[in-house]
Structures are given as structure tokens and as C-alpha cells.
């Protein structure tokens, strides 16, 4: 099939619906990589990635930035948004929303590009296979390596913004909590439709929390109570029983040890030198 495609259109390589491009990172690169382009289609319709206007680009290099892609697809049409992701998904990942366009995202492999017009996608898919393309030039340099690490370090967080954000979140949280408590208080002692009253952890008669630990403790308590009532080694038969158990234990241990020895023997553990 691939061969057929090649014959039909020498300038455009199409494999199973993906058009393939040869791209180099920069002019100094020694090898081409292959990008796989396709119009995005999914059963899930999303607002962010409108049908017909979104292009999927696979196998972009891990250090790829939005600027690099804009440079690559210059001339295909106006680009509205670019989503860079580590793996293909049906919907945009939440993290990529909050990322500002300048931030360098490491370890990406798929880009979703939204064009203003549907023609942009078509133009991109019709790019010729034979020409070598470049992700970077002088205006859009590659952003990676030592330079990226230094930039990352320079991005020192602003304490004030941090404080404000945290305080806002906490305020929201306590508000929510208060409302919940209020609701619970109102519901206290009020039977539901079937007539049951929920035991809450507030008020006079609060029950203990239902945790695994508490339940285990309760069971243990019961068992201990039972045990206390028993007499140990009182009857001769009981006495004999304990002794028999001791011997059985010894036997079991002996068998176990024998098995172990067999294993050790197999691995020649008894040759001292």
C-alpha cells in the first residue's frame, strides 16, 4: 500500500492516512526524523480541538517548542493554539492547559495544532516528503541543553504570588468545610426517608470512626474475652494435646529443614573449599 501511495504522488508520502515528513532539528543535525501528520478525528468532540481544524503531529522531538512548530508549519495557515503532549490522547491533558506558551515542556512527543481555517490542516498534510525541513533557524533557536537548564533555574518563584494563591485556596477550602459541617449539623437527628438516623461525629453521642483498625480491635477484644473464660492444661486430655502439638511442631520443623537442606545440597552449599 505504501508503495502504491508513493507511485501515485511522488511529492507526498502517505501511509495509512498519515502523511510523513522528513525533518531535521537544525542545520547541524546529522539525521532526519520522520513526523507523522494527520487530521485529528475523535469520537469525543472537544471545544479545544475542533473537528476539521486540528492537526496531529506525531514523533516530534522531546525538546520541541511551540515556536519550533510554528516555524515548521509557516505558510500553511494561521495557527491559533498548540498543545504539546507526551502521548496521544482523545482530549487535551489538564496540565497542558495551565502551561504558558513560553515554557519549555520536556519530553513531548505529540502536538495538537489548531488552525484558524480547515485549509491549514490540508496544507500541512500535503507538504512534500522529499524536502528536508528544519525545526529551527536563527530567529527560532532550539531550546534545550545547558541553556534550558539555566533558564529553568532562573525561574525563581515569586513569594508573594505563591502566598496569595495558597491563601486563596485555603480560604476556599475552609468555606467548603464550614458549609459541609453546617449541613451535617442540620441533618443531625433528622431521620431520612426510610426512618434511619445517621450517626455523625458531632454532638453528644458521637460514635467512633469506622476504620479498619477500630474494627480489628473490637474483634480482638471479643476473642480475648472468650479466651479468659477458658482453663488451660486443666484436663489430662488438654495436657496431652499440648504435648502432642509440640511434637507435631517439631516434626513439621524437621520436614521443613530437610527440604531446605535438599535445596542447599542442590546448590552445592556444603563444599567448604
Amino acid at each position: 500500500m505504501a508503495q502504491q501511495n508513493k507511485l501515485e504522488n511522488s511529492s507526498n508520502l502517505l501511509i495509512q492516512g498519515y502523511s510523513v515528513l522528513q525533518v531535521k532539528a537544525s542545520e547541524r543535525s546529522r539525521a532526519c526524523r520522520f513526523l507523522y501528520l494527520k487530521e485529528h478525528s475523535s469520537t469525543h468532540q472537544t471545544v479545544e480541538w475542533p473537528q476539521g481544524r486540528t492537526l496531529e503531529v506525531h514523533n516530534i522531538p522531546p525538546y520541541c517548542t511551540q515556536d519550533n512548530l510554528r516555524k515548521l508549519l509557516k505558510g500553511c495557515g494561521e495557527i491559533m493554539r498548540i498543545y504539546l503532549q507526551p502521548k496521544p490522547t482523545a482530549m487535551p491533558l489538564k496540565a497542558s492547559l495551565s502551561v504558558s506558551p513560553e515554557t519549555h515542556i520536556k519530553n513531548v512527543s505529540v502536538a495538537y495544532i489548531v488552525f484558524r481555517k480547515a485549509s491549514g490542516v490540508k496544507n500541512a498534510c500535503n507538504l512534500t516528503y522529499d524536502t528536508e525541513r528544519f525545526l529551527s533557524d536563527k530567529d527560532n533557536p532550539l531550546f534545550s541543553g545547558l541553556r534550558a537548564y539555566i533558564k529553568e533555574y532562573k525561574d525563581i518563584p515569586d513569594v508573594k504570588i505563591m502566598e496569595e494563591q495558597a491563601e486563596k485556596y485555603l480560604a476556599d477550602y475552609y468555606k467548603r468545610k464550614d458549609e459541609e459541617a453546617q449541613r451535617e449539623k442540620e441533618m443531625e437527628g433528622v431521620p431520612d426517608e426510610e426512618g434511619f438516623i445517621k450517626v455523625t461525629r458531632h454532638g453528644k453521642n458521637k460514635g467512633s470512626r469506622r476504620t479498619e483498625e477500630n474494627e480489628r480491635k473490637a474483634k480482638e477484644k471479643m476473642r480475648m474475652k472468650k479466651k479468659k473464660t477458658e482453663l488451660k492444661d486443666f484436663y489430662t486430655s488438654q495436657f496431652r494435646e499440648t504435648k502432642r502439638k509440640h511434637i507435631l511442631e517439631l516434626q513439621a520443623k524437621f520436614e521443613e529443614d530437610k527440604r531446605k537442606i535438599k535445596e542447599m545440597k542442590a546448590s552445592r552449599k556444603f563444599r567448604p573449599y
Partner: peptide
């Protein structure tokens, strides 16, 4: 005669070079 995918070593090395710029 079906299309398959094979590792592209050269481009991996190229990526390492770019990621390790400097």
C-alpha cells in the same frame, strides 16, 4: 509488504546531542 515501524537510531542520537547542547 506492509508498513512497519523500526527504531530510528540516528535521530535518537541526534536528539541526545540536542538535549545535551553545551
Amino acid at each position: 509488504e506492509r508498513p512497519n515501524l523500526d527504531i530510528d537510531k540516528e535521530s535518537v542520537l541526534d536528539d541526545i546531542r540536542v538535549m545535551g547542547g553545551g
